[in-house]
Amino acid sequence: MLSLRRWWLKNWLRIVLIGVSAGAVWGLRQTQGDVLTEIYGWVARPLQGDAPNQSWERDARVLELQQRLAELENQNRSLRSLIDYQSELDDKGIAAPTIGRSANGWWQQVVLGRGSNDGVVEGAIVMAPGGVVGRVEAVTANTSRVLLLSNLSSRVGVTVGRSRFMGYLRGQNGNVAVMEFFEKLPDVRAGDTVFTSNYSQLFPAGLPVGVVESVDTKSGPAPEAKVRITAPLSTLEWTIIYPYTPESLDNLPLTDDNEPALNNQAGDGESEGTGNVGQ
């Protein structure tokens, strides 16, 4: 008992300090490091500058608008019969400067200098000249963290603008991502524009994502295409955030057995995916 007491007297401070550190780290995890991000945003504020007006951004914007126009024409043709079609994104976006990148080399993220004070919400869509960039995954008062489309292991539902063949876009940590098709023989060729699909629950349908660079029909289990993401992910400076709440599960197209298509967590996504194609 005496030795235990002596040990305690000798070590209590160390144990208390370890406890405090553990508490601090736990707090950081619970709050997603909000305190640190917020201080960082506050320090970086004077460095943000004004929105640039550069020619490459204008060119990229024109390209984006052309892609969007093509997509809208396609959509118009196929949706003319639907009377309850409505746009999913508000027109008014929040312009936000990039104030930081990912906190490690494995994740593809940016930190933006606008937060909940400016109306940014979790799940908001982030666009840049060129198309979709990613999705807001954490918000503090004055900053928000965006997970980019190029993030390793990311999968987003996309569609080929010209032929409406659907698939997943898999991030590859760079500006080129891989699109994996649901169909065995998709009609796709280099130069086709790729948009978010209406199968996607993370993004509203019809936003420009990228351009097909090459197609590999022999790859198994499904044909793949290399898609160059049009937005300059590695040199993002200003982005526009559009608040977006995904459709509730009840409004989603139903599969044959009248189950909500995306409510199924079983993970057999390919059959689910094909079930939705053509709806």
Partner: peptide, 13 residues
């Protein structure tokens, strides 16, 4: 934050 949507579509799996 728990991922929304199905298991297949996510920005970080």
């Amino acid at each position: 934050a728990s991922p929304i949507g199905n298991m297949e579509e996510a920005l970080a799996t």
